[in-house]
Design a protein around this nucleic acid. Structure first.
Lengths: 133, 133
DNA sequence: CACTTGACAATAATAATTATAATTTGATAA
DNA sequence: TTATCAAATTATAATTATTATTGTCAAGTG
């Protein structure tokens, strides 16, 4: 937690509450999810604070922004490089830490300098499989 | 083109203009891109028609919806399974057709039934690399 | 020809996000 | 400890992307 102060990230009560909610969170929450959860403790919490904090955190490498969900951003406090498995029915997202070595064939690389990758696996989660229809 | 009529997709002039704009398009355009391009020929074209057509097309498998770009959807008329390479600076998207065989380790699969995958490569395109700073 | 259906356009409504402006606060240094 | 100030917070307005609603029209069907 102290690491943030060192990089000029002012630790306010609101930010601590957001960090606390994110810490170890495997739900890949949206801004709204976070707002709902944190405003229970901070009824005056503003949506803008959630967005501002997430954006500042992202810039400082404290959180990853996921573009998996159409229409809204999701946030992942797990900053280790990893991949995701998405339930196409309920949109639940699970982490995948498998070690994949992916390269782009020269022919396809089109002179891009490759800096990273991210795999999205699609599937149906056990809960949704259990539901008929 | 005839294939659409067979599956109950009525071929109207507006739809033909959209299909024509998408055909062979490698730009992965957003709804707005398509709207702008097509409304040059059809000044009365409505945004709703673009969205409706894209959604209907998607359901019929004529186009793929990409969630790569935060804040907006992009559409890809290339329906062959393939992957993408995104310039992190200018957000340009290129197709990657490399043949990757990806499996999820049992330990991580969490009883999901895997139905597909999509790799996003991140990089810097030649144009953006050429720009200083 | 009457009838149904689906597509279109205009527009309203909603959802997610970003911007603005006034006020407050945490961190630092005197 | 207190003064200071940049940065954070809040309320709110504005924007952007998308979806829903409604009335109209045209194509195809019995």
């Amino acid at each position: 937690m102290e690491k943030y102060k060192d990089i000029g990230f002012k630790l306010t009560p609101q930010r601590l509450a957001i960090l606390d909610h994110l810490d170890g969170n495997k739900e890949h929450p949206s801004a709204e999810d976070i707002y709902k959860a944190v405003s229970k403790q901070f009824p005056t919490m503003s949506f803008a604070t959630v967005y501002n904090t997430l954006e500042t955190l992202r810039q400082k490498g404290g959180v990853i922004e996921l573009t998996i969900d159409p229409g809204k951003k999701r946030f992942d406090p797990n900053i280790e490089p990893h991949h995701h498995l998405i339930c196409i029915k309920c949109k639940r997202i699970a982490d995948i830490h498998g070690n994949y070595k992916l390269t782009v064939p020269n022919r396809e690389r089109a002179d891009f300098e490759i800096v990273g990758n991210h795999i999205e696996f699609y599937g149906i989660c056990p809960k949704c499989k259990a539901v008929k229809n």
